[in-house]
Amino acid sequence: MSIPGQIAAALSLWIDSVANTVSARLERARGAQQIAISEDEEGALTLRLVSKASKDADLPPVRIGIVDGAISTPLSPEWSAAMKGAIVDLALRPSRFVFRPLELPGRAVEFLDGIIRAQIDRLTPWSPAEAVFHWTPPQPIADDHVELTVVATARAAVTSLSQALLDLGATAVDISTATPGMERIAVHHQRIGGQTGSSRLRFALIAVLAIAGVPAILSIGLGGIVTDSYDAEQQQIQRRIAERRAIARGSQGGPGGSAIELLARRKQTMPSAVMVLEELSGILPDHTYATELRIEGDKLQITGLTHDAPSLIEILERSPHFASAGFFAPTTRAANESGERFHIETRIKPQFGSGT
């Protein structure tokens, strides 16, 4: 997926999440009846009222069974009436879920949804489309890293349960579970009532983002055009200076100087892959392993494993052969890898050696 496509997908997920959250809170504020359902070790569900209407004040908890994702025990008329228009909090057993610890650099917190979504098929038996998942709040650890736990299960397993409750008349179903540390975490939200409100909130958020984003995009676009124009002009001036110097040296070097000056100019203006590899082998630390190198024009992209990714930026910046180093993708750390997987891009200075 292209970068604009990834941005659009992330914005869509954020808008849906905000719209559903705000809509659910508005429903609770309007006094919608709330029902808490918990699953016991035998797989049965226990229903109890959390917020009670006056007519349901004496309604006792009830235990029902489920078979293949469907409710096998019919509800009493009183509970069927209480279920109409209610918001259901369904707490499932942790054994239905997989829990995967994950360690990431602290700067990756801003991109958690995209990072976890991209790795969900490696962390769990399911693809992103087949799973519902969420994660615990990131906790800081040593070396400016954070750790969290990804909680996931099969989408079909939970949607069948939530749909069964919606079919009984519930307005919305929130599904959660308890992590090994007994922390409650919500992994899925499904609703049928209030769809119009969610849609209106979604359109309102899109309109606000559009109004605020258009001037910002125009500003960024104009800034990029101006910057590119200055960069192109600077490169053209540098090429002209190099050509003038080559011509001046050629006129002083006699009849045989033109071919030599042509080679010298080529050496000064074209980056050498051999020299790039030689320079990298000399400056990269022993704990750093490059798994992929790509040279496109004067840009070098390096991918690999290291124990300290931020320090590589400073090392490359100190080299006389590289400039403008930075990360072009988030740095990640998987549980089965000994180091951080980094993605760094830097500009290769065209002149290597003494300038001869």
Score class of each variant (00 low, 15 high):
Leu209His: 06
Gly181Val: 06
Arg96His: 14
Pro125Gln: 04
Lys349Leu: 15
Thr149Val: 15
Val132Gln: 07
Thr149Lys: 01
Glu39Gly: 02
Ala232Met: 07
Thr21Arg: 14
Glu103Ser: 13
Trp14Gly: 13
Asp89Phe: 13
Ile66His: 00
Ala164Ser: 15
Asp231Phe: 08
Arg25His: 13
Asp89Lys: 13
Val146Gln: 09
Arg100Asn: 09
Ala8Asn: 10
Ser51Val: 06
Gly254Asn: 03
Gly339Val: 09
Thr306Trp: 11
Ala57Tyr: 09
Ala273His: 05
Gln163Cys: 01
Val226Ala: 14
Gly257Asp: 13
Ser12Asn: 14
Glu147Ser: 13
Val88Leu: 11
Ser162Arg: 05
Gly69Cys: 04
Arg184Phe: 04
Gln163Gly: 10
Val274His: 09
Gly353Phe: 03
Leu316Cys: 08
Ala129Gln: 12
Glu147Thr: 15
Gly69Met: 05
Thr21Ile: 02
Asp16Tyr: 00
Ile7Ser: 03
Glu110Lys: 11
Ala329Thr: 03
Glu278Trp: 07
Arg25Leu: 12
Met1Ala: 14
Phe352Thr: 03
Ile120Cys: 02
Ile344Cys: 05
Arg117Gly: 09
Ile37Phe: 00
Leu222Cys: 06
Gly5Trp: 07
Ala108Val: 13
Val187Leu: 10
Pro330Trp: 03
Thr21Ala: 12
Ala8Asp: 11
Ala290Thr: 15
Pro94Arg: 15
Glu261Asn: 13
Val88Arg: 05
Glu78Val: 07
Pro77Lys: 03
Pro320Met: 01
Ala242Ile: 05
Leu300Met: 10
Asp89Trp: 07
Ile37Asp: 00
Gly326Ala: 14
Leu277Gly: 12
Phe97Trp: 09
Ile120Trp: 08
Arg96Thr: 02
Ile64Trp: 06
Phe322Glu: 07
Phe99Glu: 04
Thr227Pro: 00
Arg266Gly: 14
Thr73His: 03
Ser162Val: 01
Ala273Pro: 02
Met1Tyr: 09
Gly224Trp: 13
Leu92Gly: 00
Ala108Gly: 08
Leu316Ser: 04
Pro180Cys: 11
Leu161Asn: 00
Leu49Tyr: 06
Ala212Ser: 11
His145Leu: 12
Phe322Thr: 11
Ser251Phe: 05
Val151Met: 01
Leu166Pro: 05
Leu123Asp: 00
Pro125Lys: 08
Arg318Ala: 14
Trp14Pro: 00
Leu102Lys: 10
Ile3Ser: 12
Arg245Pro: 00
Glu103Asn: 08
Gly31Val: 05
Thr331Asn: 15
Gln351Glu: 08
Ala86Phe: 07
Arg191Ala: 14
Ile247Met: 10
Ala329His: 01
